[in-house]
């Protein structure tokens, strides 16, 4: 499965000098993120160390090393939101979306939870942003409703 896509990318770039970034860009396009197995696949075939791919992928902001969900939920962790209880809401969200411990994306790849420093909307704390839509004065109870609205 990944082999077929990798092969297509390789055919496109294998003659090109300096193709690491282009390969990574296409890899992300195909898989949604930079996959370790795909990097190793290219590393073997092009005789370019995997560390080199990894170094490039971590340098540029465009690349993600973990799969990202179709929907991005951003929780504000500024002082006001923290005071108003953003942490329990994040926990409830993780539970609701069955996001495994230590990960930030749900198994089905539908949701990614991220937290940011203050978004500057303290008067409606706690604030959550889902795909650019702002949800203010969030509560634990409103979590299912919020998820329903996106999916």
């Amino acid at each position: 499965m990944i082999e077929k896509k990798c092969r297509e990318i390789l055919d496109k770039y294998h003659r090109e000098k300096g193709n690491v970034i282009s390969i990574l860009q296409d890899m992300q396009e195909s898989f949604g993120y930079i996959r370790e197995d795909a990097v190793n696949w290219f590393s073997e075939r092009l005789n370019i160390p995997a560390s080199n791919f990894y170094g490039v992928a971590t340098f540029y902001a465009q690349f993600y090393l973990r799969p990202r969900g179709e929907n991005i939920i951003t929780g504000c962790c500024g002082t006001a939101c923290h005071v108003k209880g953003s942490a329990p809401i994040i926990n409830r969200l993780r539970e609701h979306l069955a996001i495994p411990e230590g990960e930030d994306t749900s198994r089905d790849g539908k949701f990614t939870i991220e937290s940011v420093a203050c978004v500057g909307a303290c008067s409606i704390a706690p604030v959550f942003i889902v795909n650019k839509k702002v949800f203010g004065k969030m509560t634990v109870d409103r979590v299912p409703e919020m998820i329903k609205e996106i999916s």
């Binding site: 190793n40 160390p49 560390s51 080199n52 990894y54 170094g55 340098f59």
Partner: peptide, 25 residues
């Protein structure tokens, strides 16, 4: 590792204040 040994075990990763030498992944 890259110029002399040509093993490519490590490379610089990340950038700015958080850049550091590391192995792949």
């Amino acid at each position: 590792c890259n110029e002399v040994v040509m093993a490519g075990t490590i490379d610089l990763t990340g950038r700015g204040f958080h850049a550091m030498p590391d192995t792949a992944f």
